[in-house]
């Protein structure tokens, strides 16, 4: 039952705004990054930029429901939206449970939305590679907005923040959540803080964040606002969206946006380079050699640095002249 994909046909359909083609191109890029250039070379003429929003927070704070609620408002304004929902892959089985889409059922049939669930898998260079590629596909497809939703745990997910222009950090009432996020360093990256499930309280955590913000310095004079929402009833979502507009306007006017775009691509370029170096290295150093130094390290753990140094000593990267 394995499906064969014909890239040229898919590109043609993609340009006709066919969602089936978009979905399949995502699969191809996700599974075969080496085919990315074959795909992207078809989009050289496209100049469209999407505005990218990142939504993060601990599991269970209602990120997906909130994403659905934001999407609903944006759709009402006639905007098109591409959503990427990232969930972790189990390190034991390699499988994943992708349970975000179920929170967005209400908007899922709108012709202007496309939702893709993504497992973090064991990507070299982190999950952000696949995410960035999908944002590029969404941009080529002409989406007005892209929403990236992640749990924001671990270094590789953390890097997703480099891809978004406005980052919303979602929390729920109770200090525990704020403290956990503070520990994880996530709390410092927000452009907007959202206290969801406001029906359960929320004043406490809002005050806590406010205090924390008092101690921070702000990039470009933007003090992150704190919004309270109830994503089930939609209460407060309008205010949240107002704040997104404000932040968008702020970074556009202050030229922070082009700075953020630069980070987005600089980051990607570095990642692609490292990926290439990885492949070169793999061709130069084989598994037996690695096993060998691991065995050696067991004999004398303090030798690790020397062993690696020795192994690397006969590796030479050279840059050929391009002319």
């Amino acid at each position: 039952m394995r499906r064969e994909y014909d890239i040229d046909l898919l590109i043609r359909k993609f340009k006709e705004k066919d969602k089936i083609a978009l979905a399949r191109l995502i699969s191809i890029i996700e599974n075969h990054p080496e085919k990315a250039s074959d795909i992207f070379k078809n989009f050289n003429h496209i100049k469209h930029d999407s505005y990218i929003i990142g939504i993060t927070g601990s599991p269970g704070v209602g990120k997906s429901t909130l994403t659905g609620a934001i999407a609903k408002r944006l759709l009402k304004e006639g905007k098109s939206i591409g959503v990427i929902s990232v969930d972790p892959t189990s390190p034991f089985s390699g499988g994943a449970f992708l349970g975000d889409r179920v929170r967005m059922t209400e908007v899922s049939l709108d012709p202007n939305i496309f939702i893709r669930s993504l497992a973090s898998r064991g990507y070299r260079g982190g999950i952000s590679r696949a995410v960035l590629d999908i944002t590029l596909l969404y941009e080529a497809f002409g989406m007005d907005f892209i929403i990236i939703e992640t749990v924001g745990v671990g270094q590789s997910e953390f890097e997703i923040y480099n891809l978004a222009y406005t980052i919303i950090v979602v929390m729920v009432p109770g200090y525990g959540d704020a403290i956990q996020m503070q520990k994880a360093g996530i709390i410092e990256i927000g452009d907007i803080y959202d206290v969801n499930k406001k029906d359960l309280g929320g004043a406490d955590i809002a005050a806590h964040i406010d205090m924390m913000l008092d101690d921070s310095t702000f990039q470009g004079g933007w003090r992150p606002p704190i919004v309270q929402t109830n994503s089930i009833t939609g209460d407060g979502v309008d205010e949240l969206i107002e704040n997104i507009w404000d932040h968008k306007e702020h970074i556009e006017l202050s030229d922070l946006l082009s700075e953020k775009k630069k980070i987005r691509f600089a980051y990607k370029i570095k990642e692609l380079l490292y990926y290439k170096i990885d492949i070169v290295l793999e061709s130069l150093i084989n598994q037996d050699e690695l096993n060998h130094i691991t065995t050696k390290a067991l004999e004398n753990k303090f030798q690790i640095y020397d062993l690696v140094h020795d192994l690397f000593s006969d590796v030479k990267f050279e840059r050929k002249s391009k002319s």
């Binding site: 269970g60 429901t65 449970f97 349970g99 179920v102 929170r103 109830n230 089930i232 009833t233 939609g234």
Partner: peptide, 10 residues
């Protein structure tokens, strides 16, 4: 009151 999605767990 809005529609509530239960916090399903697998």
């Amino acid at each position: 009151w809005g529609i509530w999605d239960p916090p399903l767990a697998i």
